[in-house]
Design a protein around this nucleic acid. Structure first.
Lengths: 341, 341
DNA sequence: GGTGTTTTCGAAAACGTTTTCGATTCTTAA
DNA sequence: TTAAGAATCGAAAACGTTTTCGAAAACACC
């Protein structure tokens, strides 16, 4: 009920709030004796500074905002954990918002965050957004933004990403080197950059190794909440192109749908058809056969994105020049059972 | 760079900040004409109120804090989604913190939140905490707290939970009715209430159906980050008690470890040993055979916890009496392959 | 005892709002 | 024309800090 404030401890001691404040903050123009008295009194009265008042006065909130496009699951929960750990370590609180892949909501939420005076924001773009003025506005208002995972190349800020095209290229190259010849691709929807880049990596890898690209071998899986899409398209492709010997899936989720179908239909993985996933979600080790996949370092992504953001906040505060950096986190192939005969 | 404030639009219009503030907030003692002018000017100058100043003046932040004990995964990510959705709908922001199952950290984080002047906090207790004075302190300072999932019966606040003992009782009763006779239990560690309650439910169900409880059939799995624990204990129990015909696992994770081992060891599930999980995590449908489990409604739990908290915030603000409620969310058995022959 | 220096403290402004309460102007009716 | 009432506005205090700047007190030195 009774939150003690500076003036309470000041009047208890018969001194001014100024002195109390300074004593608590270690100013050198307060004598050791009164400082000691103040600290003790603050202790016994259980004083805790009112952050809101401090924020108003100092013009910083020690809070960062995070906007993610999708529900907190799988990949984004790893990212979030990385963000939370780094924020905790650096003394920041984090406010989290979900845009549900809607541009309008994302825009509104960003405005809300800067209205809340967060010191900076971390965001991963919704599939819908192709206008970036809201982000540029935030940056112009001196609220640093760092983009992660789903980014826009055209906005001038720091970014932390993986190289989706390269990772996909590596995956398909791996399959080719393993001797697979007719490799299909289950891609994501046409909009998000990740989906496009992974598709491009697939295509380039084929061409670079003398395999002709065949658009008929590309199936679209745009449902990313369950594995039905992978299941159904696996069924479809095995009637339309029964002679394929590998599938590179955009996501572990669709890969699992594929394996599920194969298991039920008696199609041997990897003997008849190999399956390669993407992201290294937890469940890729629970499916049988265990899934070969690309490790997408979500935790580290959150970690470094938060770190860069907090660095930029400090730079802005001290009026130093802020240097935007684009860090590309390494991915690697996790070879498991679904591709080794 | 230039955030416009009340005084900017006041001087642009040659009126006082008081009038501007009132016009924007719909006070009735401002003429229609000046109100219109103010609103238009606010629009063109892109005015957004400084939340920090508003918070200081109004003594509310429209923000709630959430403390969860473990990493944002599986169950807690569902809870978090429920919280986020409800908060968004009711106009609240959410700050999220992880206590990593540490009492000291939990205590510090709660203090931080109330120092930040959040309007209320949602928390799930760490395994370590057996002293609840920090929570009582928060409540005494008029910051409502609602506990979810991992709660303490002794603190006087609202709670939203499932009935772990009953759910476990139902699960084991189901197994008994299916004809299983020698049912083992892979329990969690000894501290958290959930673990205790599920164990108790297991024991009572046996006794209620005339099966003698045998402590040798209870194994402890206290690692909840991977399924190794379930795997190893499955291996162990099959050498020590090869004649069991069912295992009730505290968690889908350990259930999956069990099934993994059984699949590798050629032990048929459920023909030789049935497996029953708990929580209905996503991966319980990717394992083969699909796992029979208890549906633990995480999303709904987050939803109703947030809803209750926000109601209590309103009650406190309007000096109405706050009535604590304890809501017990229904669980249900999801019957899948791992228990039906 | 006077001068200069160091130590120690506090008044006051500021951060950007909200809200109370009084003042001024405008209407209206007698 | 005047008084009462309604309509419209603004000064100022308040929320709880931080920080500047000046003042007072204490000390040192001759």
């Amino acid at each position: 009920m009774n939150n003690t404030k500076l003036i309470d401890i000041a009047s208890a001691l018969g001194i001014s709030v100024t002195t109390v404040s300074k004593a608590l903050k270690g100013y050198t123009d307060i004598s050791k004796s009164t400082r000691a008295k103040v600290i003790e009194m603050a202790e016994t009265m259980n004083y805790m500074p009112n952050s809101v008042a401090v924020n108003l006065r100092t013009n910083e909130t020690k809070t960062i905002g995070v906007i993610i496009p999708a529900t907190v699951h799988h990949f984004f929960s790893s990212v979030l954990n990385g963000i939370l750990e780094e924020a905790e370590k650096r003394g920041y609180l984090v406010i989290i918002l979900q845009s549900n892949e809607k541009y309008e909501l994302e825009k509104k939420q960003l405005a809300l965050l800067i209205q809340k005076r967060v010191d900076g924001v971390l965001m991963s773009l919704s599939n819908e957004t192709d206008d970036f003025s809201h982000i540029n506005d935030a940056i112009k208002k001196n609220t640093p933004v760092v983009l992660f995972d789903k980014i826009a190349k055209r906005v001038d800020c720091s970014k932390v990403i993986i190289n989706d095209a390269k990772a996909a290229y590596d995956a398909v190259t791996y399959l080719i080197n393993k001797g697979y010849k007719k490799i299909a691709h289950f891609r994501g929807s046409y909009v998000p950059q990740n989906s496009i880049d992974r598709f491009l990596g697939y295509k380039r890898a084929l061409e670079a190794h003398g395999i002709e690209y065949d658009s008929k071998l590309v199936y679209v899986c745009d449902n990313n909440t369950d594995f039905e899409d992978g299941y159904e398209n696996a069924q479809k492709i095995m009637t339309e192109h029964p002679d394929i010997d590998a599938i590179f899936a955009i996501t572990d989720l669709v890969a699992i749908g594929i394996i599920k179908y194969f298991n039920e239909a008696g199609i041997k993985t990897p003997q008849q058809v190999a399956v390669f996933g993407f992201s290294n979600w937890f469940m890729s080790t629970v499916i049988s056969p265990k899934l070969t996949t690309i490790d997408q370092p979500g935790f580290e992504m959150g970690h470094t994105a938060a770190s860069i953001l907090i660095d930029e906040i400090a730079e802005i505060k001290e009026h130093r020049a802020v240097t935007h950096q684009i860090v590309e986190l390494p991915t690697r192939i996790i070879e498991r059972e679904s591709t080794v005969k």
